[in-house]
Design a protein around this nucleic acid. Structure first.
Lengths: 341, 341
DNA sequence: GAGACAGTAGATAGCGTTGTCAAACCAGGG
DNA sequence: CCCTGGTTTGACAACGCTATCTACTGTCTC
């Protein structure tokens, strides 16, 4: 613990090779024969050598810094995003810089410029809605900084892109509600500028259509992912002559608001109304009843994004990956009583 | 934008001095006469010079990396902590590394060791309950890494320590509820291993005592900051013969659970029961009614922590700062009806 | 068996700073 | 006017790595 730090020279001496050979092994460069490579690797592990990234950054062309840019203010989303990317960065000796871009500020691109000037970045992870911000991508392209987008809406081949399967998630929920005997559904959508939002709506509607429900079986109300919009939608849905017995809110915040609306109106959840959400955000378990929802592998996606950046995958055409989702069955859904009767 | 990066040599040439003098100016070292200093500063700003931190780290004794360690899984807390520290780090050209220490894992100290070995740190920010973890502090002391603690419970002079005024926050709530005419209070506490938890309880009780309420005016139930414990406490409080009309839950999660419990039991909030929380976490506005609560300046505290670390304040005795809190009045509190009658 | 060529290894020059040490300067005392 | 001791400045060697260029090894071809 107290010894001076192990350097590449120590490793080279111990393995009986030049420092350049050690460098080749570390960087997985070709032109090192297996026996030598093994000797070097042995020396590395015996000495517990960890390359000094400041020296690597200074000498080489990499900076060992990756940034995750977001404007989405959902804590849960950011935290998950960070978790996955951080894991990979740490494994590879990279730093992760988290940066909020406030795209409602008219000068946000200038701010971004200053940020990009400050640190040299090896790559950037973009999350919605920044994934479709032409200004941001231009800046990045202009400075030659590679980036990976998570769930981009447009221009999918402009960069590597990662998708979660929002459509099947919504379909899963539709099937779940239908299997509980529900016949009249409410759908509270998110803003259509999000790909995710569009996919969730369509996935839900398409699956219901497949299950044989007509258009009149579902009442669609436009929301904007906020608690307040969910509350308004909930009240509207429950005030109808023939109220719905199951509601899909395109995120958990709105779902929790729908549950609150039901409670205020004296409608019991899940006995008289089933409610499902999407995202598995913390609020899903911070209210009663806890919300049946869809969990997305955000951390897995951001981990993969970091990997693509760090391993400098430069495949053409760009990599496009789809990640699996899963349904988390909690207590906000129940059998349609009308059916039992 | 396209020019090669400006280095210390360019600045030195332009100012007509040696690079060492420029270095002195950058690092605010003494022994540079004002006229020279000004010339250098002018050259720096004209050229838009930004020191290369990889080179500084390699050459000097600093690493330009500060870590924030936490085991507290509250997203809101972590996000705020990060926000403040990040701002300062960015200003000063430092990197912030976020690291979760899972202190329920028996091998967590080994894990910490490995982490500390991986990156050389210039300083560490510790948040509760890590602030009182002897093992963690020993490691840090052993490696000579300075640290700042946020709200430590014990051994306050062992490091710089920052406190938020939990006690006055709780007192504020007590006054608020008393002024609404409440006479019988419920108190749902957190685990006593948190300083904050203890302070909140005492602040509340002391203030009520000052206001002339006897011990029998308040029903204390031990919780553990979780939703479930809040639910149990809420049910217990409301099942009493002479139920309380106002409840203080030591965090917002438990407060939201108390509100849910009331709803389940048919007790209207705030008409029949006032509920207050603490922290101003997101859930406070994600339920109905939104919770009256206390906002703490977590981001300000972590910013100050970063500043202390980066500016290497080595004052003896250690700095100990107290930060102000404020009450956020929302809709979960109302006038005691019994009083009006 | 010589020549060409790819694959493999090493010597060495940076990368942009800070730290060390020596030189130059300057004031005050004898 | 010289010496002393402090302050101010500069020259130059690290820091630990990657990149470049050169040298060596084989293998294959004719």
């Amino acid at each position: 613990m107290g010894e001076a730090r192990v350097t590449i020279v120590d490793v080279a001496r111990r393995a009986g090779v030049s420092i350049k050979t050690v460098s080749r092994v570390i960087n997985r460069e070709p032109h090192v024969r297996p026996p030598l490579r093994e000797k070097v690797e042995l020396a590395i592990s015996k000495l517990g050598y960890v390359p000094n990234s400041a020296a690597r950054a200074l000498s080489g062309s990499r900076s060992f810094v990756v940034a995750a840019l977001f404007s989405n203010p959902s804590l849960h989303y950011i935290a998950e995003l960070q978790k996955g990317a951080l894991r990979i960065c740490r494994e590879r000796g990279y730093h992760l810089v988290i940066e909020q871009v406030d795209d409602s500020d008219p000068a946000y691109l200038d701010y971004l410029d200053r940020f990009l000037q400050g640190v040299r970045l090896d790559g950037v992870i973009l999350s919605p809605p920044l994934t479709d911000d032409a200004g941001v991508m231009e800046r990045l392209d202009g400075m030659g900084i590679p980036y990976v987008r998570i769930a981009p809406l447009s221009d999918v081949d402009r960069s590597h892109a990662l998708f979660s399967d929002d459509r099947s998630g919504a379909a899963l929920l539709a099937r779940h509600l239908a299997s509980l005997g529900h016949r009249r559904f409410g759908l509270v959508t998110g803003p259509d500028t999000h790909l995710a939002s569009y996919e969730r709506r369509q996935g839900f509607l398409d699956e219901l259509a497949v299950a044989g429900f007509g258009k009149d079986a579902v009442e669609v109300i436009q929301g904007d992912y906020s608690y307040d919009s969910g509350m308004a939608a909930g009240i509207e849905l429950l005030a109808k002559r023939a109220p719905v017995t199951a509601v899909f809110s395109c995120n958990d915040d709105m779902a929790s608001a729908v549950i609150a609306a039901a409670t205020r109106l004296g409608v019991k959840v899940p006995d008289e109304l089933s409610v499902v959400g999407f995202d598995d955000s913390p609020v899903a378990t911070q209210i009663w009843p806890p919300i049946t929802t869809i969990r997305q592998p955000i951390a897995d996606m951001s981990a993969e994004a970091a990997r693509l950046l760090i391993d400098r995958v430069e495949a053409r055409p760009c990599v496009s990956l789809r990640f699996e989702i899963s349904l988390v069955d909690r207590k906000s859904t129940g059998i349609n009583k009308a059916l039992v009767r």
